[in-house]
Design a protein around this nucleic acid. Structure first.
Lengths: 372, 372
DNA sequence: CTTAGCACTCAAGAGATGTGAGTGCTAACA
DNA sequence: TGTTAGCACTCACATCTCTTGAGTGCTAAG
């Protein structure tokens, strides 16, 4: 859990760490004073957006140090890679490593005020939403409460539990297949038939058979089961079953792409750090392509609790200068997906972490109720 | 069809109008020379983005006029409201009225090169897409080919034709309803039951009854029919039918919101005219709220052929400085929705109109095939 | 009616200059 | 030995001036 190690870090939201404690545990290079100054610089920069100079730090009541002393410490911190100055005569700003250290060690996650909780609850409780809409609402909350961009990875199709399948013939050769997952998510797909369209009765039989045979399995298991049964096909004399299998192989083949909901992308226009065209375009393109975003969210789905990716540590160039704060959500039993906020590295972590955590809890609770 | 009248104008895509012709028909205030100069200024400005001066026009081979003469004409055009100069020593740029006139009278829609056609066709023919995906693909094409933002209004739910309904119980009191429209669009909705959940058999009965009774009607007609039958309820002794009606009233009540697909929003970052934060934000907000966009697209869906809205003529402030080029698409019989491109008023109309028109045709053809 | 000539305007870019926030270094101090 | 005051230095940023060039309107001649 050393600072500077890339990779994930699970925040403990309940325990508050004192700076004092960290001094011993987290990093031997830094004494209490350095930590305190680093903390002040990061928070000052987050608050103002400007580079922070030695005078500003020195004026803070807390530590009675002259600017010169602060400068010495800052020089050390710069040498260690936590800070950088944009140019000779400017103050210092945190590097990615600096943010990382701040987030891992110094950050005190604040609790949401009851006002904020109420605001979120109110937005959330807009009646009887379908899962998809509920997730979209969650994205909107994330975006509104953080003033950044909210992202939600919808439950992965392959890990959803099969509830129901239905076939609707569209034309001579085109058949619409509708699945419903246990949590009520509806997916559909069109398959082109090679042979003739089965009669209504045959379809009904196949439907009944599949609904019976596949109920309660995850899509992954469904796939496995079909492959398995196909192998034994020679032993199958029931024409209907063999037809159903042929069918469903077609149906469950191929991937249904993961779905990512992005809300409040326009908020990145508010961020001074993305004022230049290039970084703005890079981000928007990343939003439109989604695949890298999905990858990150997927990683986060497999982990537990709140995670913070900072800048280049996210592996993807287009997220340079960005931080991504995510949390997975569950249905009480297993992790279904993840959600979070993306914004500039200079972000009010303390606020955003609380919002992401709370929203993930809300979504989990909602899904838990549904899946019961 | 006088220039300056706000409102819609249906372009004739096949007929090419000569400037000469227009001089007589379109506007009595403008003689051939003025038209020619206005044309040159608009096209020049569209091509370069810069204000166009008298010297530039004078240097064109076509009309042998000195800069001074051109200046006189330009002064007249400015007085009539077609042009404006950003400042004293700059050239002229078209006003909204100027663009309107250009589009209505001077614009020569060019045909797509076979290369472009092939490119569009190739992108379109990505196999066996569901309607929703096909429309999204269309949005992407519009965006790619125009370098602006592509928008598509999905077929309005109320006007789609009922094909199939299905009920899936999710819990004791929550029932998932799935409709399929004739063109294969799947919609779903969750209803909360007041009374007890019907048994599987009852549900099956209700399903059969509704599928029978409602087949081939539009959702609008379905609603009317239900209301109608409810009135006669006293005469109904069939418990099942009355149950089905109660049910479906709940199901078809309330609106399913219109769906708008927006692709390539990031392209507005490329446009120098939207370089200032404010106009950029205004646009992105309009994209996120969608409602005004839907209203415009809906208007265009009810009209025929390609339509062009310019700047403030669109009624909405947030589209100031923008033009919207749209066309409706059909299933061969009736207009289902509309699609188009939104970008700065300074837009290559000739190119974009052709792309929008062609894409609308493609989508129409695809839906025609599906609905047969 | 058209055009050449001319004085005038103004945005944009290039220097020049001052200001202030911030730095590093050094020497004095506790 | 750690801390601090003092000082020279740096550099982004804002302001001002000056120049340049594209463009205009007006007037008088063709």
């Amino acid at each position: 859990m050393l600072a500077g190690l890339a990779g994930l870090f699970v925040l403990q939201l309940d325990g508050e760490k004192s700076v004092w404690l960290c001094a011993g545990i987290a990093n031997m290079e830094l004494n209490e004073r350095s930590l305190s100054i680093l903390d002040a610089i990061v928070e000052g920069h987050i608050a103002s957006g400007e580079p922070i100079g030695s005078r500003t730090i020195s004026k803070r009541q807390k530590l009675q140090l002259s600017p010169a002393t602060v400068r010495n410490v800052m020089a050390d911190l710069e040498e260690m890679g936590y800070l950088i100055s944009p140019h000779t005569s400017a103050g210092r700003i945190p590097t990615d490593k600096g943010y990382r250290f701040y987030v891992d060690t110094l950050l005190q996650v604040r609790n949401l005020s009851s006002d904020e909780r109420r605001k979120i609850d109110a937005q959330c409780r807009t009646g009887n939403l379908r899962t998809q809409e509920m997730l979209q609402q969650a994205g909107r909350i994330l975006s509104d409460m953080s003033n950044h961009t909210g992202i939600v990875l919808a439950p992965r199709f392959v890990s959803t539990v099969f509830r129901h399948i239905e076939f609707v013939p569209l034309s001579q050769s085109r058949l619409l297949v509708i699945f419903v997952s246990k949590s009520g998510v509806v997916q559909n797909k069109i398959i082109e038939l090679d042979g003739a369209m089965p009669s209504a009765q045959e379809l009904q039989h196949i439907t009944n058979y599949l609904n019976e045979a596949l109920s309660g399995l995850t899509i992954e298991e469904v796939r496995a089961k079909i492959v398995d049964q196909m192998k034994q096909e020679k032993n199958l004399y029931d024409k209907m079953v063999s037809g159903a299998l042929n069918f469903s192989q077609e149906v469950f083949r191929g991937d249904i792409e993961d779905d990512v909901i992005i809300e409040g992308a326009a908020n990145i226009l508010n961020q001074p750090e993305f004022s230049d065209r290039d970084s703005m375009k890079r981000l928007f393109n990343a939003f439109e392509q989604k695949s890298n975003l999905i990858h990150l969210l997927d990683k986060s789905q497999q982990a537990q609790g709140v995670q913070i990716y900072i800048g280049s540590q996210s592996e993807y160039q287009e997220f340079e200068g960005c931080s991504l704060i995510t949390a997975n959500y569950t249905n009480g039993k297993q992790s279904l997906g993840s959600l979070g906020v993306i914004g500039p590295s200079r972000m009010e972590y303390s606020q955003v972490v609380a919002v992401v955590d709370y929203t993930a809890q809300l979504v989990s609770r909602a899904l838990e109720l549904e899946s019961e």
